[in-house]
């Protein structure tokens, strides 16, 4: 009976790992601090969400499910905060952003 849930959980975790890898590839391939933050906040936030969903589906009680949900929300929030502070500091210290014609 639990099999379909486990399958969905496995698929979700695999997709989550894919987005973590994509976020890291973005960090390496993108040209400047601002575009790298795009990859980190969005791809990693989504990757974590999918891994958390996978972990939720394997719980037998509802309390760990709520705890996992809170962990995800907190990490999403801190991720967005840190990204905003990093980008703002970069702009204030006049870090230029990469433009297409420079390529």
């Amino acid at each position: 009976m639990n099999d379909p849930l486990l399958w969905i959980s496995a698929i979700s975790a695999t997709c989550g790992c894919f987005f973590f890898v994509a976020g890291s590839i973005g960090l390496l391939r993108l040209p400047d601090i601002y575009s790298r933050l795009h990859a980190l906040t969005k791809a990693d936030g989504l990757g974590l969400g999918l891994v958390v969903l996978a972990a939720m589906l394997q719980q037998e009680h509802w309390i760990p499910v709520i705890k996992l949900g809170m962990v995800w929300l907190l990490i999403l929030f801190t991720g967005a905060s840190v990204s905003l502070l990093t980008a703002r500091t970069a702009l204030e210290t006049k870090v230029p952003w990469w433009r297409k014609e420079e390529a």
């Binding site: 987005f19 391939r29 990859a39 969005k42 989504l46 969400g49």
Partner: peptide, 27 residues
């Protein structure tokens, strides 16, 4: 918001994994 975050993640993953990174940044 969850739906947009999903689209956002897929969009950025697609861009960084394409052979020639398809970005045109602006402020």
């Amino acid at each position: 918001m969850v739906w947009r975050a999903l689209i956002g993640g897929i969009d950025v993953a697609r861009r960084v994994l394409s052979p020639s990174i398809s970005i045109e940044p602006s402020m």
